[in-house]
């Protein structure tokens, strides 16, 4: 069932989203309405479940008025570039990595996409969504009202899941089971984000801005963390607010967050450097402290992880994904 409002608006008939995005999944590429400003790749793992990956062409920005004729609930994540829009007077401007849930059949949007825009969208019919999430359904909002537009906070897990799903869409021919799994994982992290939304409300916007600055400063140099007192002073929060805010907003304490990023970085560095070099680069003077911390996060010692990554680098790509995936 498509919404077929075709009344001219302000003297201009807006483009239908199904024309532009292939949102009704019949078109593998956008029609003439897309004007070649971006490329769309669409897959339909199951009836009622469509995944779209949209990439700007790197040259042209796209500014267009749209009439949404999709009856899907959209779960999306901006992976790169900028997208801005307005619907019902509400400004929409996701940050990269931020989740977005939208259901707005028949609504008019004005949108703008930058040339380097990259965007992943999971579209589910309300029936399919109900089948997948059961009672959780109402947590996204009141679908009976016919309009849902909301952001879910950015999280590294949402971005990871979105990136994996985007890869599955791009490399078509991937296992249908893995594609389906990636869809469920992406959807799962969206719902997790909704959990954090309630907590996040307890942190006022002004504090969130300061907490984000604190996070940036904290992760600036992964070999030397600032003290909590320094960090608090630099962003103008007291230490208690800083510590509590980190837990509410990022789901972990200041040093846990630092340590997590430090170990993620360690894992990357181990591709190119040995264990001692990696430890030193990350500010460890004691290798066994580094090894213990690494094992605490990944369950393997850095030496073992390095061995695995070296194998996966030398293997053909279709084998390596299996090997590195187990590390």
């Amino acid at each position: 069932m498509q919404c077929t409002a075709t009344q001219p608006i302000d003297g201009v008939t807006p483009l239908r989203t199904s024309k532009l995005f292939g949102g009704e999944h019949s078109a593998a590429q956008p029609g003439p309405g897309g004007r070649g400003a971006f490329k769309a790749a669409l897959v339909e793992p199951r009836p009622g479940m469509v995944v779209g990956l949209y990439n700007g062409n790197g040259r042209d920005e796209l500014r267009v008025n749209l009439l949404n004729d999709s009856r899907y609930v959209h779960f999306s994540c901006l992976l790169g570039g900028t997208s801005q829009g307005r619907v019902r007077g509400i400004a929409i401007a996701p940050r990269v990595g931020e989740g977005h849930i939208g259901y707005a059949p028949g609504e008019r949007f004005s949108v703008w996409y930058s040339p380097d825009y990259r965007h992943l969208e999971l579209m589910l019919t309300p029936e399919m969504l109900g089948e997948l999430v059961g009672d959780e359904f109402e947590r996204i909002g009141d679908i009976q009202s016919g309009f849902i537009m909301r952001a879910t906070p950015p999280g590294s897990r949402t971005i990871d899941a979105a990136t994996r799903l985007a890869q599955r869409v791009e490399h078509q021919g991937a296992s249908p089971l893995l594609l389906h799994a990636a869809v469920l994982e992406f959807l799962g992290w969206h719902f997790e984000g909704l959990n954090r939304n309630g907590v996040q409300d307890a942190v006022p916007l002004r504090e969130r801005r300061r907490l984000l600055a604190a996070r940036e400063r904290l992760l600036e140099d992964l070999s030397a963390p600032p003290t909590i007192a320094e960090l608090a002073m630099e962003v103008g929060l007291n230490q208690l607010k800083l510590k509590r805010g980190f837990r509410s907003l990022f789901g972990m304490g200041v040093y846990s967050l630092f340590q997590r990023h430090r170990m993620e970085r360690a894992r990357e560095l181990l591709y190119h450097y040995n264990v001692t070099e990696t430890a030193l680069m990350l500010g460890y003077s004691n290798i066994s402290h580094f090894s213990t911390a690494f094992r605490k996060q990944f369950g393997v010692l850095p030496g073992e992880a390095r061995k695995n990554t070296l194998i996966s680098v030398q293997c053909p790509s279709h084998l390596s994904s299996g090997i590195s995936g187990s590390a």
Partner: peptide, 21 residues
């Protein structure tokens, strides 16, 4: 039209780390 408001007590020391932001 849409409106926004902000109040800051402004009694704390200057948060140096925020200036550039």
């Amino acid at each position: 039209a849409p409106v926004g408001v902000d109040i800051e007590q402004g009694d704390s020391a200057l948060p140096e780390g925020m200036l550039s932001l």
